[in-house]
Amino acid sequence: MILIIGGAYQGKLDFAKSALGVRREQVFTCTGRELDFSKPCLYGLEEYCYACVLAGVEPAEEFVRHRDQWKDSILICQDLSSGVVPMGAELRQWRNATGRLCQYLAGQADRVSRIFCGLEQRLK
């Protein structure tokens, strides 16, 4: 599994396409709690995390449960970790749950790439 993280608009998906050969039809874009592991690339995991928080579910635990389905995937998640502690409880839980998921996935990943201004910084 390859984990791609980075801030908003940094070019994470573009990197998956240009450097890892991901095609548009291979990308599942998260908009809620649904995940389609039949696609090799899952994009926007932070939105999946947000939906999990609203539903009272821990996203990292969900990923542990489905480990065999994503172990060869490319997973893309926005880094939400570096702002002021959000005022809203939901946003705080969102940030925490997304951080826990990224830590778990980074531990499992063969490669972790952080994208900064469109450039790859290899973290693992």
């Binding site: 908003a8 201004c117 469109g118």
Partner: peptide
Amino acid sequence: YIYSDAQRYDESTETYRRLLAEIDR
């Protein structure tokens, strides 16, 4: 670098962030 916080911004702020990131890239 204003891209790694956990906020839901209004549309004009989000547009500003997106355009700044495009220039950066």
